[in-house]
């Protein structure tokens, strides 16, 4: 038997439509589960918090505890990390600062290296590597990933052996 008759005799149309429906359903279900998996896992991670909400429903009237008011401003945190560098590297860091002041922050490392080489600074690449390793220059985040800034929480001090 040939042609459409053969297809009908073997239930070809039914098998094709059912088969395609099953393949699509399988992958659609899997895609739907996996698309929401991140959300399920986030809920799972917050399960303690959510269950606590059920066990101890929040009071209708807000229950505020008035903290005694102090007019003193909060003390600024001053726990900066101290990084010890030899004098020549401190000079390079100062030079880099001059360049980045002109470039603006966050800055491009490629531009920094280009300017440093133009200014005749010796071994700018090696120094940049050191500053990155020590966390003196750090990468920005979000839209500015790939650009760099000077770390705020690092204080450069001269190595004691040289003082």
């Amino acid at each position: 038997m040939y042609g459409l008759k053969a297809i009908s005799a073997a239930n070809g149309w039914t098998i094709t439509f059912t088969g395609l429906a099953i393949v699509f359903t399988g992958l659609v279900v899997l895609a739907a589960i996996m698309a929401n998996m991140e959300r399920f896992l986030a809920l799972w991670d917050r399960r303690g918090e959510l269950l606590a909400g059920f066990k101890h429903p929040p009071r209708k009237q807000p229950f505020l505890v008035q903290e005694p008011r102090t007019d003193r401003p909060e003390a600024p945190t001053t726990d900066k990390t101290r990084v010890h560098l030899p004098l020549d590297q401190i000079e390079v860091a100062d030079h880099f600062h001059l360049i980045t002041n002109r470039l603006g922050e966050p800055f491009s490392l490629a531009q920094l290296l280009e300017k440093a080489s133009k200014h005749g600074l010796s071994s700018p690449h090696r120094h940049l590597d050191t500053f990155l390793k020590l966390g003196i220059i750090v990468e920005d985040s979000g839209d500015r990933q790939g650009f760099y800034t000077w770390a705020n929480d690092v204080e450069i001090v001269r190595s004691s052996a040289e003082e």
């Binding site: 491009s108 490392l109 490629a110 690449h125 940049l128 990933q145 790939g146 650009f147």
Partner: peptide, 16 residues
């Protein structure tokens, strides 16, 4: 060693 990958848009990425 350390390599710096510099992209034409100014971004860069050190590989250590």
């Amino acid at each position: 060693g350390t390599i710096l990958l510099c992209f034409p848009n100014g971004r860069s990425m050190p590989l250590r």
